[in-house]
Write a protein that binds this DNA or RNA. Structure first.
Length: 423
RNA sequence: GGAGAGGUGGCUGAGCGGUUUAAAGCGGCGGUCUUGAAAACCGUUGAGGGGUACUCCCCCUCCCAGGGUUCGAAUCCCUGCCUCUCCGCCA
């Protein structure tokens, strides 16, 4: 959520900056609502004040044994007027809140212009894509052996976009999770965190999945209206909701491994083959909570932590800065990490690292105490995948295959595989 | 699932429907004293929003949440959520 003051005081400039994100701000409607808000809020508060004053007078008169009938009569219509004003104000506040909730974050100054993926800007490359003296297979073909990657079984159990892994491949999948968590906790200073996989709608509002991304969520069908998390960003970041954090606790760096559930409602027919786009996948998430002035630097560091995993696995990748039009709803700036997939002969997203600035913090009232003023101020939040496990498994299979369709285990993973070197 | 108890400020914990404008203690902050510190004493103390372009002042809201009764609700009524204890069930 943006600062309502921006809407009140600087709406034209705000509208201009949101345009780089492809979002058209309804300036007239917002200004009108804002005017009404002010009018009715003033009216309601004046009436509330009058009620408080008069009620107190009645109390005092009664205590002194005076006749309160005249005072009671004087209160007259006040209650009814107040009720109307409060109802009217409530309606306007709700409309305003609904509108504000659907305005995306303002892009950072140095986000490249553009409307789609095409306009993203490559920042750097690392590693060299492997050269094969045979035609490399994709992970689906590689996984077919011994049904170690079994889509048909998953379809029978559940439906499309799920997978069953068996034996060494299942273990490799688990090894990746352990490896990533260990690296981030032991080398990058993150606190390992275990979190619920079901969250309430309040949490989903806090991190910005609601109200606009509802169709991508899997909801539990009972009166509690829980949803399966689409990313650990939701529980991790919402740990800060309603908090006032003392400055010496910042920056907070936390990580969690969780399954993620996405309905992929807008992706029919996209990546239907293989493990790239699933309804359920595992991810290691990195979350930072920082002072506002530190968030730019934090994004660089967080991104480097995700990159470190790819480097240790010796997987070629590139870093891409998303253009305005490709930025997520909450993000002011995003770097995507894209790993080389030989069978697709191109780089594919394996991590997305974003600076949400105060956008999520405002939605969940996550604050820190500014040491100079002593007053609570909104923190900045950041998150990134470090990394998406399923896609990482795909990358290892495809990059580490040999002509016999065997998969060689990267050295850093071998300790996690009981010394197994080839699958 | 059954039976009870309870949710009040950073914490502990009072609070007959009306000087409660939420007592008191602890903690925090500032000061006095001191070479310094402790102790003692004095003062201070939250969050959200609005008005006014404002390190001033004024107002509103907030005692788990949402409704209701009332001139007036932390206090009374209803609903929900959560926590604790016991029983049952259970990985």
């Amino acid at each position: 959520m943006l600062d309502p003051k921006l809407i009140r005081q600087d709406i034209e400039a705000t509208a201009q900056r949101l345009k780089t994100k492809g979002f058209t701000l309804d300036v007239a409607a917002l200004q009108k609502l804002e005017e009404q808000r002010k009018e009715w809020q003033t009216k309601a508060e004046t009436l509330q004040n009058e009620r408080n004053v008069r009620s107190k007078q009645i109390g005092q008169a009664k205590a002194q044994g005076q006749d309160i009938q005249p005072l009671l009569a004087a209160v007259g219509e006040l209650g009814e007027q107040l009720k109307q004003a409060e109802e009217q104000l409530d309606i306007i506040q709700q409309q305003l809140h609904a509108k504000l909730s659907e305005i995306p974050n303002i892009p950072h100054q140095d986000v490249p212009q553009g409307v789609s993926e095409e306009d993203n800007v490559e920042i750097r490359r690392w590693g060299t894509p492997p050269v094969f003296d045979f035609e490399p297979k994709d992970h689906v073909d590689l996984g077919a052996r011994d049904q170690r990657m079994d889509f048909e079984a998953a379809t029978q159990l559940t439906g499309s976009r799920f997978v069953v892994l068996r034996a060494g491949l299942a273990r490799l999948h688990r090894a990746l999770i352990q490896f990533m968590l260990d690296t981030h906790t032991e080398e990058h200073g993150y606190q390992e965190t275990y979190v619920p996989y079901l969250v309430n709608r309040n949490s989903l509002f806090g991190t910005g999945q609601l109200p606009k991304m509802e169709e991508d969520l899997f909801a539990i069908k009972d009166e509690r209206s829980f949803c399966l998390i689409p990313t650990a960003e939701v529980p991790l970041t919402n740990l800060m909701a309603q908090q006032i954090i003392e400055p010496d606790r910042l920056p907070i760096k936390i990580t969690a491994h969780t399954p993620c559930f996405r309905s992929e409602a807008g992706s029919y027919g996209k990546d239907t083959r293989g493990m790239i786009r699933q309804h359920q996948f595992e991810k290691i998430e990195l979350v930072w909570v920082v002072k506002p002035e530190d968030s730019d630097a934090a994004l660089e560091t967080l991104t480097s932590h995700a990159e470190a995993i790819l480097k240790k696995l010796n997987l070629a990748y590139r870093v891409v800065a998303l253009c305005g039009g490709d930025l997520g709803f909450c993000s002011a700036k995003t770097y995507d990490l894209e790993v080389w997939l030989p069978a697709q002969n191109r780089y594919r997203e394996i991590s997305s690292c974003s600076n949400m600035t105060s956008f999520q913090a405002r939605r969940m009232q996550a604050r820190w105490r500014h040491p100079e003023t002593g007053k609570p101020e909104l923190v900045h939040t950041l998150n990134g995948s470090g990394l998406a496990v399923g896609r990482c498994l795909v990358a290892i299979m495809e990059n580490y295959q040999d002509k016999d369709g065997r998969i060689h285990i990267p050295e850093v993973l071998q300790p996690y595989m009981g010394g197994v070197k080839v699958l």
